[in-house]
Design a protein around this nucleic acid. Structure first.
Lengths: 209, 209
DNA sequence: AAACCGTACGACCGATCGGTCTTCTTAATA
DNA sequence: TATTAAGAAGACCGATCGGTCGTACGGTTT
């Protein structure tokens, strides 16, 4: 029988380390501004060594997107799913997103924000994949809204699509304002909290402040 | 007496043409991705000719910011200021912003959106200037909210800062969603409209749909 | 032990980057 | 008419870009 192949294990370790650094770097410089030379220097590996794992910069960009998506699922979505279904889970998701920004997990703030805005004026497989990940995120928000409606915690005439849009909008703007204007993300938290409490059939499901 | 100097006039024409193209290009590639070579090619001028007007790329970036700010003031802020002070002017500002995006005035959608997100992870005079322009924009929104409160069109306990945040957030997210997900900006319009009508002392100041 | 394969390196490539310098044209001024 | 100054072009610079190629190390399989 064959145990774990030491070569593959080492490769996997390297790959993870590179993608960690790539996501961090891209959160500052964007996926386009991400430079293979700088990435290699930071990790003390050779630039050509990167091509042993990804055949082109575009492939590394796509791998970085998947890596960032995993990180987002683990650090933002995961904790929220521990909360009870409905309004509380929806607000918890918004809060853990703001926490992700406040804790400065990534030096640039958010991998997806900069990569997605960078993609607004372009076409290609990278923008396509980013659009799909964004759609997935919006769909998640809409699903949490729908569940809250089904549980009777939000009025039956709620439009999930629009409320999801509002929650996401507050998150995006929170990042921009907190980073560029050094404002606390409290506006974003209060805005969504007030909005949800205003709609809720039982506001006591949510905190007061 | 001296009339208009033909040399200076020509320079000014060139400068305007270059900045027009620079703002358009930067709306797609960002201020960092803006390349002097590509810019020169597109305008059929020489790259070194650009240095006759700006001593460095950074100076051109700063000039492009001022140019984009002028464009924004003329095409977005100006029309809104024609509306009567208060709620109607506030909503008109939001609408003309969405129109700016929908009309695809800039190929990338919005110069400031991509430039500002690009700046979230950096420091320097360019991010500083972009932060100042953003602060100016937020301050404008807050002022319009305050005026609506003073006119009694919004409740006295309205927090201008937070409402301004909500309106801006809807605008930012509208750009991202419409560009990357091909969604209509109607969610952004409806969200702000419903929010303002909900707060308004006289909802009839605003349209129904 | 030999063959094999995943990993990683250094040297090198053409293209493009921001930027400099010299030259030429054109229009205003003395 | 001679001089001056602004605008613009072309040749050129070192640095960096993404990417290729040949080679070497080390763990796996036969």
């Amino acid at each position: 029988m064959t145990g774990t192949d030491g070569r593959l294990a080492r490769g996997e370790r390297t790959r993870t380390a590179v993608l960690d650094a790539a996501v961090a770097l891209a959160s500052q410089a964007g996926l386009d501004g991400l430079s293979l030379g700088q990435l290699a220097d930071r990790l003390h590996v050779s630039k050509s060594g990167l091509f042993a794992h990804w055949s082109s910069k575009e492939e590394l960009q796509l791998a970085a997107i998947e890596h960032a998506r995993d990180q987002w699922a683990r650090r933002v979505v995961g904790p929220a799913l521990d909360r009870p279904r409905g309004l509380r889970r929806l607000f918890a998701l918004h809060e853990s997103r703001l926490a992700f920004y406040s804790e400065r997990v990534l030096p640039g703030g958010c991998f997806f924000a900069i990569a997605e805005f960078e993609s607004t004026g372009r076409t290609g497989v990278v923008p396509d994949r980013l659009a799909a990940v964004l759609a997935e995120w919006i769909t998640l928000l809409e699903r949490l809204v729908t569940e809250a409606v089904e549980l009777g915690e939000l009025p039956a005439d709620t439009v999930p699509r629009r409320l999801a849009f509002e929650v996401d909008a507050a998150g995006v703007a929170a990042l921009l304002h907190s980073r560029l204007l050094a404002r606390s993300p409290d506006d974003a938290r209060q805005a969504v909290l007030a909005r949800l409490r205003g709609l809720a059939t039982d506001p006591d499901l949510l905190p007061y402040d």
